[in-house]
């Protein structure tokens, strides 16, 4: 069994009277891909926000490598190794594709406070950024302005930023949502590749059952903010709680 990398203990988020995430206790190990499923509004994205730091916990703790990080800032968590791709595209719209990725590489290498050198003279940053773009097959679009990209390409760039960040914990929030049929496989293959590296921990919020079946080692189910099921995919999908709470809902939606 691999080491526990990330843990949440009784993690809770309340907004006024509404409990979005309700005492979720869960541990994530390296080389494991955990899919987080649940109907809309079940608290998946809020759970992500608690882990990456955008939302402050009302109760409970988050630990990375055994260190408590519940009160640590977003930027510091990223430095410590929690990387996040966002569900709604969240890029730097008026900068070029390459510049978007370069910014991530530059952050990773701690060059942000380099005031008096020319950004263009840091060839190693550009090389690393181009490599990350290559992984999502976007190297030809490097010079384009992000706001001019197709939605699918913006989603892929979102993934490229995470690749460039190269964190310990990868958090994907519906990475293939809105992608065309030929774009999605590029991203899924990439996630599969990441999975084969034993030092990575991957969390994936996903609705598509075929994707989950293909990638997940484990599924956790959130329902009304609480952890409703946790186990290997086959077991969880077959369980009553999923059949009722999630699959039933999904069938209605479809």
């Amino acid at each position: 069994m691999h080491d526990v990398v990330l843990e949440t203990d009784n993690l809770t988020a309340r907004f006024g009277g509404h409990v979005a995430v309700d005492h979720v206790t869960c541990a994530f190990r390296s080389s494991e891909l955990t899919a987080i499923v649940g109907p809309n509004g079940a608290g998946k994205t809020t759970y992500f926000n608690l882990i990456s730091g955008q939302v402050a916990a009302s109760e409970g703790t988050v630990k990375l490598d055994g260190r408590e990080i519940t009160r640590v800032t977003v930027a510091r968590r990223t430095e410590m190794g929690i990387g996040r791709a966002f569900q709604l595209t969240n890029l730097f719209p008026n900068l070029s594709v390459l510049e978007n990725v370069r910014l991530v590489v530059q952050a990773r290498r701690n060059k942000g406070f380099n005031l008096f050198s020319m950004a263009a003279s840091h060839g190693e940053i550009t090389d690393a950024a181009e490599a990350a773009l290559g992984r999502v097959r976007m190297q030809d679009l490097a010079g384009q302005t992000v706001s001019e990209l197709s939605h699918g390409n913006q989603r892929k760039l979102e993934v490229a930023l995470l690749i460039a960040l190269d964190p310990k914990v990868y958090m994907f929030d519906e990475p293939t949502a809105g992608m065309s049929v030929d774009e999605a496989p590029v991203v899924l293959e990439l996630i599969e590749e990441l999975k084969s590296d034993a030092t990575r921990t991957i969390l994936l919020v996903e609705h598509k059952m075929d994707v989950i079946g293909q990638l997940a080692d484990r599924i956790i189910v959130l329902h009304n903010g609480a952890l409703a099921a946790d186990g290997p995919p086959a077991e969880v999908i077959a369980s009553d709680v999923v059949q009722e709470a999630y699959m039933g809902k999904a069938l209605e939606d479809a």
Partner: peptide, 15 residues
């Protein structure tokens, strides 16, 4: 980057 999207700038590790 901050001008474009300060939320994301923080999320890629800049304070």
């Amino acid at each position: 980057a901050i001008r474009e999207n300060d939320f994301r700038t923080e999320a890629i590790g800049y304070r």
